[in-house]
Amino acid sequence: MDVTVFAQQIANGLVNGMAYVLIATGLTLVFGVLRIVNFAHGEFYMLGAYITYFVGTLLGIDYLAAAAIAAVVVAALGIAANKLIFWPLRRDHEFTILLSSLGLALLISNGGELLFGADPKYVDSPFADEVLDIGAITLTQQRVLVFAAAVVALIGVYLFLRYSRFGKMMRATAQNPDGAALTGINIKLVHGYTFALACGLAALAGALVGPTVMIFPTIGNWAVLKGFIVVIMGGLGSVTGALFAGLLLGVIESLGGGYISLGFMEAIGYAMIIVVLLWRPNGLFSTARGLR
């Protein structure tokens, strides 16, 4: 086995995996706090990429600032989605909520196709084509940025959940919504903030991954599927679980595609989930209710 190629595939897998983690973190937060399986999550990823593109090309703002604007705008959209759809339905059956999120996903992706056009677009980043040689491994600056920015964002989320007032309120709500409400926590506000955080993270993922590939209005489907796999494998509601599961999925896909079969790359990922879930039905890092 060629060590250089092996190391390169591991590096490829870690970068892809970190993007999965960023998508999955928001999804797992929404489930942990709101108990919602949100199928529209991938669409916020798509919106993040598109808003970065449009802010960059139409307003001529540089890439990093455009990415930040996209995250903030999409976070606001997340608050609106929660207010209009998920908050009113919070007492309904889980299938009803699930279908409403499926409807929202269809609405955003088809609306996106109408607004943005069906043609693929490229999010221009100054880092996209700059190749870095790290030892024997070759990565573009953009891919290093995906990894690094995700690490910073995750540390931020961790500190926020651990030490900030809102973070503590979110954790309390996740553990026991009724108890949290009794202690005077404004549940509605917590739901809104959780959605804003989750959608902002999804948008950030879209803005970061955008320049490494092409964007088109249906990329949300891909994002939400990867996100779900990671969330379920890591354990619903577990941020730590999402981190490990995401990186694991990325590396296993990369090695599976590299050394077993490219055609079966996705199937290898799914086979891993099946094994994990049959071994630990609640995922790698799940023990009880709450955010970890």
């Binding site: 190629v5 390169q8 595939q9 490829n12 897998g13 892809n16 490494t212 590939v213 092409m214 990329i219 891909w222 896909e253 990369s254 595609g257 590299g258 490219l262 790359m265």
Partner: peptide, 8 residues
């Protein structure tokens, strides 16, 4: 959507 593995 990503081809790094194959191209590597």
């Amino acid at each position: 959507t990503d081809f790094n593995t194959a191209l590597t």
